[in-house]
Every structure is written in C-alpha cells, then in structure tokens.
Amino acid sequence: MIFDLLGVPPQALFGQLLLGLINGSFYALLSLGLAVIFGMLNIINFAHGAQYMLGAFCAYFLLQFAGINYWLALIIAPIVVGAFGIVLERLFLKHLYKLDHLYGLLLTFGIALILEGIFRRYFGSSGIPYSPPQLLTGGYNLGFMYLPKYRAWVVICSLTVCLLTWFMIEKTRLGAYLRAATENPTLVRAFGINVPRMITLTYGFGVGLAALAGVMAAPIYNVSPQMGASLIIVVFAVVVIGGMGSIMGAIVTGFSLGIIEGLTKVFFPQASNTVIFVIMVIVLLTRPAGLFGRTT
C-alpha cells in the first residue's frame, strides 16, 4: 500500500535500493580509507580521488602491458599505489603533522591536481575501456531487476574489505597500537613501538584501499583521469556525515547514503547529486561531530 502512495511500483523500488547499495559500497570503501588516514594521521587526504584513479589506471596498465588480469590487478594495484602513497608520506606529508589540517589538505589537493593533469595530458578526458573479467560478465534476473554479476561482486567484496578493516583496527592488538599511537605517540614510543613507521604504513594502507576501489570501478566506469575528482567531494561529505575518523561511521554512512541517493534518483532525479550535501548540512547543524563522531 505504501508503494501505491509513493507512486512507484515495488519492483522498481527494490531495484533502486539494491543499486543504491552497490554505489554505497564505493562510497564506503573510499570513505573508509579517508577515515583511516584522518583518524590515524590527522591528514585530510584530498589526493584520495586521484589515488583511486591511479588504482584504475594501474589495473589498465597491468592488463595492457603485462597481460596481468583483473584478479591479480586487484592485489597488485593496491600494493603499487600504496607504495606510491608511502613515498608521498615520507617525502612530503610527514613534515605536516605538527601543522594545521589545512596544510595537509592543500598539499594533497595540489598533488591530486598534478596527477589528474598528467593523466589527462596523455590519456585525454574521455578515458579508456576496461572489460570485466570473463567470470563476472552477464548477470542474474532477479525478477524485479537485472543484476549484473559484476555489481553483485562489488558489494560482496567491498563489504568484506570494510568489515575486515574495521575488525583489524577496533579488535586486534595491531589496531590497539595504532589507536594508542594517535592518542599519545610519545607514550607508545616509550613502549618500544616504531610509531613513524606505523603511521607511514597506515597511510599506505589507506591509499591502497582507494586503489582497490579504483580497480573495482574500472570495469563499471571508464578508466578516466576525472573519475576520482567527481567522486571525492561526495566521499568527503560521507566522511563528514559519518564523523571524521570514525571507521564504523564511514562504512555505515557510505552504504546508507548510497541508498538515499539511489532513492532520490527515482523520486527526484535532478537532485541526485545534491541530496548528500543537503544531508550533510542537516547533520552538521544538529550533530556537528557527525553521526558516529565523538565530541572531544
């Protein structure tokens, strides 16, 4: 009955909910990386979109020049791009930890512009095709919608990675060290733990997550220099809504905003690229620390 009220057949609504979940899994994966980096390093990583784009390009290069397929790219690309992130951290970011957040933001924003500019110079703005792996082509007819296999895989893969990351940071000893190091690095160092190295590796891990999302996005969207730029603002809104630095906040908000955006595409498509920011404004007005953030 509620469906009649909304004027949308239930099949269409279920389909849109599922699609929202799929898009939400990209938001979740990307905002997770951002939340990890912000929570542990206090760096607002504006290069995240560019690193996501690098992941997609890395997958393309691996296939094109080394014949390495999607499945291996899923592992190799995050490592390569993560290593690049580590270099960035060692060369530039480590000098900024004591300064205001803005410096990190400006630096990473600049890096993002440079990277996108370089790729646009050589590959144009339209991008390059990348086919999904043979195993994941085709789809299932669910009755209420046609679900491409690849999209189903994206949801499962993203959920798994998100939950594993959450578990690692919140429930393991390594995670406890990390959290302690952000609270009081001097004390943790006194226990004989190499805090700078841990921070570097954390940044590399966050960047690797972005690259992983990039590889997963490659078969859906064209591999193009702008792919990150158009996503990064939304993902930042997700992080702000979830609460800066909150891991679970990033995951839950990522998925739920994907769904809300999906629903907007049915009821008022024109607003689908603004709805997230409207929510951000409301959340910031009522809960300035975000839905899952701790006020300190």
Partner: peptide
Amino acid sequence: VRHPLNTQDFSSFLLQAQA
C-alpha cells in the same frame, strides 16, 4: 528521466528505462 550533468553512475536511470 533527467540526470545531472557529469553523472558517473547511470544504473538507476537505466533501470527506469528498462521498466
């Protein structure tokens, strides 16, 4: 269905077209 300029994901609109 009218989509915003520079949209990444068209799946939702395509589903409406399919329906």
